[in-house]
Structures are given as C-alpha cells and as structure tokens.
C-alpha cells in the first residue's frame, strides 16, 4: 500500500474493513475498520464487552470473521491461518501456561509447536527468560510464580517465534501496580526494538503509556480513533476539575456550575467540570458560596474521552 501524502510504501500488518463477528444472536463486533502499520503500537480501548477480545481472536486467526474483510500481513486468515499464526505472538487475557511443566519447558515446548529446531528453541528460551527477568526461575513450577511473573512468562512465550506482530489481550489486568510497571517496561523495550504491538485494555493509563495510536470501542463499534493526545485534544478540555459534594447533592449542584466549563458530567460520587483552567473553576465554585467536600484538578485523560463519547465510565 502506498501512503498518498508521502508517496512512501507503508506495510500494513492488519487491515480490516466492515469487520463483524456474531455469536448466535449477539453481535460482538459490528463493522469496524482498522489499519495497523509495521512497528506501531496500536490499542483497542473499551470497557468489558466492547468487542475487543472478539476482534483480537479474529486477528489471531483462530476465530473466523462473520462478515467484512480482514487481512493480516496481507493474507486472509481463513485461508492462511497457520501461515499467519506462525508469524504472530499471542498473549491471551487468561494465562494458559501449562502447570504440569516447569517455566523453561513452557517456553521450549511452545517453540516446538512452531517447528523451531530443538537447539534453536532452547537458546531462544534462555534469551527470553533473561529478557523477562525469570532466568533464576527456569526450573520452578508454574504454581510457585506470582501473577506478574506468570504474565511475564506468557509474554516471553508469545515471543518464542520472534513474531512480526505481538497481540496482547489485557496484558496487565489483575496485576498489582508494581508488576504492571515491570510489564509495561518490557513491552516498551519491545516497541523500541521495532516489534508491532496490538493490545486491548480497559486501563486508560496503559493505553496512554504504550499506544502510538488507538481506537475507542463501545458496543462492538469504533467510536473514536487517533493518538492518545489527539483524542484528548479533540474530545476533551485540557483540565478537569473534580468536585465532590455530599451524597445526593451532585445532580442539583450541576446546574449551578455548568457555566464554569465547556461541559459538566455528573457521576454518582462527583461532578466533573471540563475547562482549560481547572484551578480557576475551583476558585469560582467557592466564590459562588458552594463548598465541595473535596476538589481535585487534573489533566484530561482517555477516561474523559470515553465518558464524553459514550456517557459511561470505562471501569464500572
């Protein structure tokens, strides 16, 4: 494919047009268009049930699309599933490590499924254990690993075939903050090495940390697309003033502050006033004789973008 603006050829790792997936009566994915380029870190952001995982399973060439077109590495996954999967790394949402095998064997055996010669896969497994900082755990049983270690091992396993494209489904869900940062660090290094990353997440901070570009999904559709900064600039204000009042007072108070920002969102436990200068909003709120129990001024995040686009919060 040729980029019309620059005239350079751009290699598309993933290209989807009008992609749908239906399970019986349920439409999980309702016609999405996605392009992912080489060496890009691309994210699907959305709440549970948005259709992210169904999309990932189609991209992973294990779940055939119901409608539309999908090409991975320029190939049709229904016809070239094995060839595509040979070049993919998949880190599933649920750990599927083999608890009967030790840490090293989990990597070794997995490499053999790709037909990698025994000596090569052994060397690669040692390299990867080093990369995910699990070398001293090589002989350990899976059950003895922490959640973060298991996730790192799963990431190492997904890299055993030196994939051109790495798919990560909710890579840090269920991990504690410290473990999440270790995983992010490793993914960031991969990105710097030029590995194309595609990840799903319902954590906006994860998307902001890792993704060059992302789509926001809701109810099986793409509701916005762009870089994290561009999305925030387009769909939100620079700052947000969070105002917490007494229980049940938020709805009534909203009208009294609505002119202080571009818009006001009413959440069960707080009001969000979107404005360029959050401190100024807080000052004016106090000038009007209102006394919130707590206030917080922060920068807009993808969470605000999502709230704006769907009227709902990401994690509910």
């Amino acid at each position: 494919m040729v980029n019309e603006a620059s005239g350079e050829s751009v290699e598309l790792m993933i290209s989807a047009r009008g992609l749908t997936k239906t399970f019986g009566e349920v439409e999980a994915v309702r016609g999405i268009d996605v392009d992912v380029r080489r060496a890009e870190a691309f994210g699907f952001l959305g709440p549970n049930g948005a259709g992210k995982s169904s999309t990932m399973r189609m991209i992973a060439a294990v779940s055939p699309p119901t409608g539309g077109t999908l090409e991975i590495f320029g190939l049709d996954p229904t016809a070239h599933g094995a060839g595509i999967r040979a070049r993919l790394g998949v880190c599933p949402q649920q750990d599927s490590l083999d608890t009967e095998l030790n840490v090293f064997d989990n990597l070794y055996i997995y490499g053999r499924y790709f037909g990698i010669p025994r000596a090569d896969v052994k060397a690669r497994a040692h390299e990867l254990l080093e990369f995910v900082q699990l070398t001293d755990k090589a002989d350990s049983r899976i059950d003895s690993l922490s959640g973060g270690m298991k996730r790192r091992l799963t990431i190492a396993r997904s890299l055993i075939n030196s994939p051109d494209l790495l798919l990560l489904d909710e890579p840090t869900t269920g991990l504690d903050p410290q473990a999440r940062h270790v995983v992010w660090d490793r993914l960031f290094r991969l990105k710097q090495q030029g590995v194309t990353l595609v990840l799903t997440t319902h954590y906006m901070d994860e998307a902001e940390q890792l993704c060059d570009r992302l789509v926001v999904m809701d109810k099986g559709r793409i509701v916005a697309e762009g870089s994290p900064l561009a999305l925030i600039a387009e769909h939100s204000t620079r700052e947000v003033a969070e105002l917490r009042f007494g229980v049940g007072e938020h709805e009534g108070t909203a009208a009294r502050v609505s002119d202080l920002g571009e818009r006001v969102e009413v959440l069960p436990d707080r009001l969000l006033v979107y404005a360029e200068d959050g401190e100024e909003v807080v000052t004016k709120v106090h000038e009007r004789g209102l006394s919130p129990v707590a206030t917080l001024v922060r920068r807009s995040t993808l969470e605000d973008v999502f709230l704006r686009l769907t009227g709902r919060t990401l994690v509910d």
Partner: peptide
C-alpha cells in the same frame, strides 16, 4: 481448566 489447547491454537497447529 489450564486451557492448553487454546495456547496451542495460537501457534500454527489447528
């Protein structure tokens, strides 16, 4: 339970 088949399916195996 340990979903080993799903892990295998992410490779060229069918």
């Amino acid at each position: 339970w340990h979903r080993g088949y799903y892990a295998m399916l992410a490779t060229p195996l069918a």
